[in-house]
Nucleic acid binder design. Sequence first.
DNA 1: GCCGTTTTCGGCCCGACTGTTTTCAGTCG
Length: 579
Amino acid sequence: MTNREIADILKRIGDMLDILGENRFKVIAYRRAAENIMNLGRDIREYWVSGNLEEIPGIGAAIAEKIEEMLTTGRLEFYERLQDDVPVGVVSLLEIPDVGPKTAKLLWEELGLQSVAEVEAAARSGVLRSLPGLGAKSEAKILAGIEAVHRRSDRISLGTAWPVAQDLLQALLAESSEIVEVAVAGSLRRMRSTIGDIDLLVASEAPAAVMRAFAGLARVSEVMLSGSTKTSVRLHNGLQVDLRVLDPGHWGTALQYFTGSQAHNVRLRELAQKQGLSLSEYAFKRDDGSEVTCAQEAEVYQTLGLPWIPPELREDRGEIQAALSGELPRLVESQAIRGDLHAHTDWSDGAATLADMAEAARALGYQYLVISDHTQSLGVAQGLTPDRLAEQRADIDALNARWDDFTLLQGCELEIKADGDLDFEDDVLARLDFVVASVHTSLRQDPEQITRRVLNALHNPYVDVIGHPSGRLLGQREESAVDLGTVIQAAAETGTALEVNSIPARLDLDDIHVRRATGLGVKIAINSDAHHPGGLENLSYGLATARRGWAEATDVLNTFTLDELRAWRQTRIARQSNA
DNA sequence: GCCGTTTTCGGCCCGACTGTTTTCAGTCG
């Protein structure tokens, strides 16, 4: 069983116990364990084999025993027995917004409903309103929630949400003069790869006026909810946006709170409690009722004796412990990026010329740009033959005479073919300045096969980086079956770098595997994979993903100067060729 | 069910909003 399968079962156990009305801390324990397993970045079997399951945060003797049973037998008796008490179909009712454990239990016990479809039918026929505690409004709300489920209101990508949020902030500032501070909060500020809804935060002395202005923005199609501190709207494009407006004096606690994550906040509040403080989005309260307010976010952490923690780290993945012991990473920043190692031109499937891509990279302040057009076997992308590659080299050399502060490097995005062979012979690769090798075809191979392909590329001394290693396309395609744990191990041995591809639908490697890779000394390359000049700017999303993976500048290949980059490649080729 | 710069037992975050409520439960983040 995979990490995800085990985590899914533990999470569902949490849901079942919740519906049964079990001790809520037991429920939280199962959910926390599931979350931490999803965050591992390595196969849970490794912990099991070495007898270290209980080293995973949130996993104690009881859950460790259950994991062991699942890994040994592929089943879990406890889970199967629970299904006699709560059918899995009842758990699925929790997917409906505004239906929680109590309502799910009610619908099941009173009406025998065990699927979203059955609840929908019951709601339409008007029987839900007869249940104790439910009325006509609740019935309508449940129906609306089910329609939202049907619309498959999937999470949207970071690259979609970020510009929308910036636009909304600008529009809000233009509409209202009563705004003291504005910020993006929530998972968007933490730069998660996908976003459920956009959270905006405003500090103002006139909240009602600000919220009226917000509800009146042209992009807003519907006001879903409005209270004295919070307004939720739906935009014409279907996105949900929550706006909170708070007093400027409470800005620090509010920004901290609404940035989350929820799990991070819970940890922080537990820490506060140990210090005799109660933390809310408004203030710290002491037992005697006196308050400590924070106008700046850093003051919140300072009050608890912590350094400020960057939003990208706030996922309860050990950041508070690291902050307590003074071991927070010094995350890589955009100024440290000296170049981009993966970009396409009209020589293959890009939209722009070599010169246009180069000038765009130079305008970003880069020292170098690697042109990595596709190679011959990727026909759909007009992949280059060795001959075409030689012609391109002449053009690149000619262009390089233009600048003394910038260098265009010739690379390629080398096909790792379905049988594991590479698309060029070594003598062709040796003439290039840089090589990114990627899988684009036969992504549905079984784990052994596709992992062997990537390992083969890793062991070629001329391959510098493995491009978008998992092959995922967020919301469209699951990652391939490639065993990233094995790939990362091998990269640590060969000295090959792994890419964090910055295309918003990819963000691949993801944050969890970045952390695992850098922890083993593997260099990562944060690349735009741009197919037009504007695409270079997507690199900020890859950078954020790397930061979420605790990456420091020294972990990132493209913080190197051009000389360092060349030396790195030469040294690695020499070492790997002798190995 | 997990966990420990007070604890191996007794804790485990905090508030807004909604609906069906005569004082609060449920859900959400």
